[in-house]
Design a protein around this nucleic acid. Sequence first.
DNA 1: GTGGTCTAGACCACA
DNA 2: GTGGTCTAGACCACA
Lengths: 122, 122, 122, 122
Amino acid sequence: MFATNGAPYYEQLVMQIKQQIVQGSLQPGDKLPSIRAMAAELHLNPNTVSKTYQLLESQRAVYTVKGKGTFVSESTTTTVNQGEIDTVHERLQNLLTEAQFLGVTEQQLQEWVTAAYHNGGK
Amino acid sequence: MFATNGAPYYEQLVMQIKQQIVQGSLQPGDKLPSIRAMAAELHLNPNTVSKTYQLLESQRAVYTVKGKGTFVSESTTTTVNQGEIDTVHERLQNLLTEAQFLGVTEQQLQEWVTAAYHNGGK
Amino acid sequence: MFATNGAPYYEQLVMQIKQQIVQGSLQPGDKLPSIRAMAAELHLNPNTVSKTYQLLESQRAVYTVKGKGTFVSESTTTTVNQGEIDTVHERLQNLLTEAQFLGVTEQQLQEWVTAAYHNGGK
Amino acid sequence: MFATNGAPYYEQLVMQIKQQIVQGSLQPGDKLPSIRAMAAELHLNPNTVSKTYQLLESQRAVYTVKGKGTFVSESTTTTVNQGEIDTVHERLQNLLTEAQFLGVTEQQLQEWVTAAYHNGGK
DNA sequence: GTGGTCTAGACCACA
DNA sequence: GTGGTCTAGACCACA
């Protein structure tokens, strides 16, 4: 059900939902499945899904209305957070170093970047 | 001395040495500092440095000659490991999703990739 | 219409009406809109507005005359409730700790207090 | 052990630790009790303490070194976050409205603010 | 129905 | 020893 790449379930699920938002298959205002429904579907404990939703909320990707549900936020790029961008830049540099080690060409990487921006990374 | 970003020390050190190799400040055949010297310099436990060198060796980035020391390998890109490339690709996609969320433009990312390939990411 | 800050709607509405009373835009004796009118105007469920009015009434801020409507009370500060004052004091201390953490100066806070007492906090 | 004011345990504990930091009884670099020790002392579940520490870390008040422990951060006011300051300001206005309702004088409030800044709110 | 909190307790990685 | 993850399952407030 989930990749066994060492990343915790809640992190994998955060990324999965973020990708759906970036790709547009989840639109602003859309309601996410309830914690219980998502947990049942993915064979996860409700606590794990709850943690996922709270993480997404802390990142302003979704918002929660108690008793109603969790919804995709309107605009997720309003406030530019330079600190977070720097962190992503740093992690990217580490990853690019790895890629160079494995012999991935610069052209291949540029294509991956282009692909990510034009069809949501899939 | 090391970032408190949650990543274990040995992992941060692996990345640091890999960057030096990719950048060329460490050349094939160059001798790495001894485990004790490196540990003293970085205020790390020798066990941590030892684990670092073992990790680098397991990835063919360096090789160890008993009694002589640890040296940078000749060519690190001879054997293409598709599995590892796929892993890097997957992690890149996650990172690109994050970047898009933060409003980083495709052009900015292309520049980061170019920079990484032309001056080692620094 | 209402902030999605996690606070339940009825609580936000209680605060909004209280502010209008403290500011003086709602005077003692003034009639509040009917539950149905208020609910329609704010796109809320009548039950939510009803709960709001009941809460305000339980705090002596308004009183209800059956068949006539809900009105702002004459004096809201007659009976000093030390227990509630202690609660507010405690919550204030928590908030002041937060403010200090964020680097808000004592002078800035004093100004905020002054402003709240001289123009209703707006 | 904890006040039964409705606030969740982890939130009360977050505030308690923040106050100790603002007051100076916890200094930058100080090690917090381990999750298990704190949980035992306060008769809480380790998960609840863990959530507390993670909240404090997400607010940069403490940092965690895996396997070593959780420590008070160096400077907690480096990056001014206007958004968070606005949120505190807003909550303060609500609280001041409550205080006015209860008949708390402006002078009394000014004294509370002064006290909070000169002896940590106690 | 919906999310939030909390306990009990297991298992894991890192130092 | 130390923090991190996860499950099972209970109870609560809000809509």
